[in-house]
Design a protein around this nucleic acid. Structure first.
Length: 802
RNA sequence: GCCGGGGUGGCGGAAUGGUAGACGCAGCGGUCUCAAAAACCGCCGAGUGCAAGCUCGUGGGGGUUCGACUCCCCCCCCCGGCACCA
């Protein structure tokens, strides 16, 4: 019954090539962005084109997004699914430097390889007419335009500040490119330098960006990471008077004003820009020597610090406290200085111990000894004058109220979020479009002169002197000031790669227009993105920067909405042998050979079958055979199914139930269980052989089409259906028919399974109880005893308690 | 350390208060074959029993419930993120 003669073996190579060609020729995947009636913007993160090519880690989002997009399409939406290349940036530049070629050449080559050899073969319905590449002048012209809009709105600012400097990459790094004190790319220990840099003022939107997270339909994990990154904390600013130094007073930020009476010293960040103003004159030599010799360590050491000789005056008690400098206080957060409360903060506790400073308990909780270790939990105030006995929260309010009366304190909110440092002293990025004029200052390049083309320089190596290689091009650098015409110099830094990708979703619909960054009508039609699928490695930076840019553009009147991505789903991480795939570990799985051997349909479906889509899993080769068997079974089933349809209830019920399951599963990205349901259905049809109904075979193909677009298209045409299966309408299902009509009821005695029986769905509890008590085995087990209590759940169980 | 997500057969996983192990891989047995492969069919958590069955079983320990993989408390381990943020 199962082995059918007369159906030729399935040859994925010819079938997949054939449909790639036909879809292309027929424009099957082309979208008219202007006339679409039910636009659905289905976005997936674009790759940076590297020499290594795409690996399996990339295919997970592409396959997952394509399945979702095809499913929407079959539900009647016009699905816009563009693709492009994040082709600027240090990564591409470093690769070019390594092999000694120009990034223009290596990037162009990598893009062709990605597009032609890889992306076009995975079966995704990308509309390549809307491709973008961030290193293309036609694109970065508008990246520069965006920068200018931000600049003109006062959101871009050039200022001096401490920056992270990678001594190996010879460039400035943003805070988030530093991992545990090391460069995220080359792992060199990062140094601190002071440079004049461009910052985008994302911090102005900290609260808005935080609040709006609640309105987003995003993966919870992603939202949590954004909230943590923004890092709002409520506390108080408390001013301490100073004696014995230039600085008259200092404000500290604390989230625990209730512990004010436990403060036994003040600590100023060792890298505080005005540190010397806190030092008593007679201590300056010593402090300077200490600063020069202070060990730079990646691991925090709470013992390191030095007394500055000055004293601080407690704002309520008037007691004088010593002032210290220590690297454990960072100048970039809060006010760069803290009141140290050793009894109730671990770090302060360690510092006090190391320097023999008093530890005072001001929040009491039974069984706690703050001399042993700091206690930061709830309790009641002690050693705090007339505030003793108050609980922590009330204490906070009281202390702040008293400080407020004396104008020495106020409630405040601080964020961890920093401004976005976008200057890069590198070559491979968009030149920041401003001109420095001795008379006019910083002048934006007029918009009609964009793009500021990246000059063709042979030697693109970073200079290591804090300026970009662009500075060596005198004829490019020297220009007339656009305002006054006098001699001026171009900005020679390029902007951060993340600025390129912070707006690419706005560009796609308008990619074929070169007179605007994004066309207002098209943008209104397609934005915000309806579904965005990508990895959580971009949960913070890319997504937060994109939200910031969108919000700013909205405020400036360029776009109607303030959030770019309505829905975002993070796919899970696919590991290999339990480890993250990476080139350095040598465990990267290259998809090309699998697609060659098994076909794109099988490979896609297999990847989706590995485990829950949003949780990821471990990649292994075993098991791909199971998917091949499944696809071959579908191949056989579809072609041997009878040509006639029988309106027969049992079959129709099964068909409706499968549609309901697959539809719900895909909508929740539960691809693995959707595939399992399709396997069951295919097996059932296979067992019927030539008696299988045509409508069942058609349904099977349609439900499978998002996963395996080529083979289902081929079969759709072989069995004589009209048009593309991908333009066919997703089969409807009737929930009534989809529900089971007979159910199996479990009978438990004291919660232990003892028997079961079949019954019509919906049979009442009373009836179930009666039937359960008639089951012979139950009669035997109960003997003469009567159930004390009976729980009957319709369609589920009867539990007899004796 | 803090914040997420997890821990279920030999393996990947299913089941979010109601018959644990769907679906698949591997393994074992069978059909077909001269034979093998492929394909197809069946079995497949552990212990015990001739069997019907019984007992145990979802990281460990406690609890709630007629009933817990699922809810609550404590602990252990793995993965991801953040990490001197006061």
């Amino acid at each position: 019954m199962s082995t059918q003669i007369g159906v030729a073996a399935y040859d994925h190579t010819s079938v997949e090539a054939k449909w790639r060609r036909l879809w292309d020729a027929r424009g099957t995947n082309q979208v008219d962005v202007e006339t679409a009636q039910h636009p659905f913007y289905n976005l997936t993160m674009f790759p940076y084109p590297s020499a290594e090519g795409l690996h399996v880690g990339h295919l997970i989002p592409y396959a997952g997004a394509d399945i979702y997009g095809r499913w929407r399409r079959m539900h009647g939406d016009t699905v816009f699914q563009p693709m492009g290349f994040d082709s600027f940036g240090i990564h591409s530049e470093n690769y070019a430097l390594r092999i000694g070629e120009h990034p223009t050449v290596t990037t162009a080559r990598a893009i062709v390889n990605y597009r032609e050899n890889q992306l076009k073969k995975i079966g995704s319905m990308f509309d390549w007419r809307y491709e973008v590449a961030t290193s293309d002048p036609a694109y970065y012209r508008w990246t520069q335009w965006i920068f200018l809009q931000l600049f003109k709105a006062g959101l871009a600012e050039r200022r001096a500040g401490p920056v992270n400097w990678c001594p190996s990459c010879l460039t400035v790094l943003a805070d988030e490119q530093v991992e545990q004190g090391r460069c995220e790319r080359c792992e060199s220990v990062v140094e601190t330098r002071t440079l004049t840099q461009w910052y985008l003022q994302i911090t102005r939107y900290a609260q808005e960006l935080l609040d709006a997270i609640d309105t987003l339909d995003w993966s919870e994990s992603t939202k949590t990471m954004q909230r943590n990154w923004i890092g709002r904390s409520e506390g108080a600013l408390i001013t301490f008077g100073l004696k014995g130094c230039k600085q008259p007073d200092v404000a500290v930020f604390t989230t625990r004003p209730d512990t004010l009476f436990g403060a036994t010293l003040l600590v100023v960040g060792a890298d505080h820009p005005d540190l010397l103003d806190f030092v008593a004159p007679e201590h300056k030599v010593e402090v300077n020597r200490w600063l020069r010799t202070m060990p730079k360590s990646v691991e925090p050491d709470f013992g390191v610090g030095i007394a500055l000789g000055s004293t601080a005056i407690h704002p309520l008690s008037g007691v004088e406290l010593p002032v210290f400098a220590a690297p454990y206080v960072i100048s970039g957060y809060g006010t760069g200085a803290i009141m140290a409360v050793p009894g109730h903060d671990e770090r302060d506790h360690a510092f006090a111990l190391a320097h023999g400073l008093p530890i005072v308990e001001v929040i009491h909780s039974d069984g706690v000894d703050v001399q042993q270790s700091a206690y930061s939990g709830p309790g009641v105030m002690i050693h705090s004058g007339d505030l003793d006995g108050l609980p922590v929260e009330e204490g906070k309010r009281q202390i702040v109220a008293r400080l407020q009366e004396k104008q020495l304190g106020e409630v405040t909110v601080k964020y961890k979020l920093r401004d976005w440092l976008i200057s890069r002293q590198r070559y491979w990025g968009p030149p920041i479009p401003v001109i420095h004029c001795g008379r006019c200052g910083t002048v934006p390049v007029p918009e009609d002169q964009l793009p500021v083309l990246l000059p063709a320089i042979k030697d693109i190596r970073p200079t290591g002197t804090g300026v970009s290689p662009l500075a060596t091009m005198e004829e490019w650098v020297n220009v007339a000031c656009p305002q006054c015409g006098s001699e001026a110099r171009r900005e020679t830094d390029v902007s951060d790669n993340f600025l390129d990708s912070a707006w690419y979703f706005l560009r796609y619909p308008s990619a074929r227009q070169d007179d605007v960054a994004f066309d207002p009508d098209l943008t209104r039609k397609w934005l915000p993105v309806d579904m965005y699928i990508g990895g959580n490695e971009h949960a913070v930076r890319h997504l937060l920067y994109s939200r910031f840019v969108m919000r700013a553009l909205h405020e400036l009147g360029h776009v109607d909405v303030s959030e770019p991505f309505t829905r975002f789903r993070a796919h899970g991480l696919i590991t290999k042998d339990g480890m993250k795939m990476s080139k350095s570990r040598g465990n990267v799985v290259n998809p090309d050979e699998y697609i060659e051997e098994h076909g794109a349909d099988v490979f896609r479906t297999y990847l989706m079958f590995l485990g829950p889509y949003t949780e990821g899993g471990d990649y292994r080769d075993e098991g791909i055979r199971g998917i091949t068997r499944f696809i071959e079974r579908v191949w056989r089933v579809a072609q041997t199914a009878a040509s006639g349809d029988v309106a027969e209830e049992a079959h129709e019920r099964l068909r409706h139930r499968i549609i309901a399951r697959v539809d719900a599963d895909i909508s929740h990205l539960r691809y693995n269980t959707a595939i399992a349901a399709l396997m069951e259905f295919a097996r059932a049809l296979d067992h019927e052989g030539a008696a299988a109904r045509r409508i069942d075979a058609c349904t099977l193909l349609q439900l499978l089409a998002p996963f395996a677009p080529h083979v289902t298209e081929e079969l759709w045409s072989r069995i004589g259906e009209e048009g593309s299966i991908h333009d066919s309408h997703w089969p409807e299902h009737d929930p009534g028919l989809a529900a089971a009509q007979r159910v199996n009821i479990a009978v438990q005695i004291n919660g232990k399974l003892r028997a079961s029986f079949d019954v019509d769905a919906g049979t009442s509890g009373v009836e179930l109880e009666r039937l359960a008590l008639e089951v012979p085995r139950i009669v035997d087990l109960l003997g003469s005893s009567r159930p004390r209590k009976v729980i009957a759940v319709v369609d589920r169980i009867v539990n007899l308690v004796v």
